[in-house]
Design a protein around this nucleic acid. Structure first.
Lengths: 139, 139
DNA sequence: TATTGAATGATAACTTCTATCATTCTTTTG
DNA sequence: CAAAAGAATGATAGAAGTTATCATTCAATA
């Protein structure tokens, strides 16, 4: 029985990881989620399609996806790992009262040019700006 | 027995919190720490001066200090709460390999103009920039 | 100083995440 | 294409960090 698509086989080949049914379902479910889902949320959704899947498998594969560059991990304002599903270059507005996180595009943020080298020989990969403040609801 | 200094009494009065011996020792110990200590590190130090103190008390008071504005909580790249002890306006360089966090001053970062209002009516309090990259050791 | 409400300390419990390991599935190799 | 080798999965125990509970002690205030 062919359980995995050619597209997913290729994605895995490109990133040097093995193809499994669980992995494909997990990938597709995560693709369909917006914002910054945490592992429990992903697990709940994947379970609908693969009821026997283990939470450990979800964790292991989220790490694998992040390490192999398929998804990006974002910093943790929630006390749990969050995966970044927005592919656009963007940053975050974090409400200091309710902790809600909203994306904001690079342009709307309007920050000046960036340096590729910083003191102590630090080599820059990217800038992640958190704007701390109050969301409309909490003002 | 007078166990608390007038200075600390005033600080507490200003922030509307009660004065206790544990609280003063905790405050002084934290003042003497640099970087981004976590609750366990703080607990270990405070215990030397107040051996009977409970870890729960440390946690409760760190929260209290942060909520009342005495200290600032920083975002969590380490998987535990970190308190910001650097009073200067600054940001963080986060190594994507070893997770080391180094402070960088506002000027050295060179990210010019900031907006006080952002889309969706978000009211800005401050900008917290995480520069993700590789520290000198990990390159 | 007595009263009342808050803080503390001890510890159980909770949340999030990781390690372990037997079983099952993929990949590789002949 | 089948067998062997290696990797992934699922179940679950356990670790780390944090919070909740509650009896006791302490600080604020009347």
């Amino acid at each position: 029985m062919q359980r995995t698509s050619p597209d997913f086989r290729q994605l895995c080949a490109e990133h040097g990881i093995a193809v499994t049914h669980q992995r494909q379902v997990l990938y597709e479910v995560m693709q369909g989620m917006e914002g910054h889902p945490n592992p429990e949320e992903v697990y709940a959704r994947v379970k609908k399609k693969v009821p026997a899947i283990s939470l450990a498998t979800v964790y292991k594969n989220i790490h694998l996806f992040v390490e192999s560059g398929i998804f990006r991990k974002m910093s943790m304002h929630h006390g749990s790992v969050r995966v970044e599903m927005n592919e656009e270059e963007h940053h975050h507005m974090v409400c200091s009262r309710c902790n809600a996180i909203t994306d904001i595009g690079d342009k709307e943020l309007g920050l000046a040019p960036r340096r590729r080298r910083l003191p102590d020989g630090f080599l820059v990969e990217r800038y992640a700006v958190d704007v701390i403040g109050l969301c409309a609801k909490c003002q």
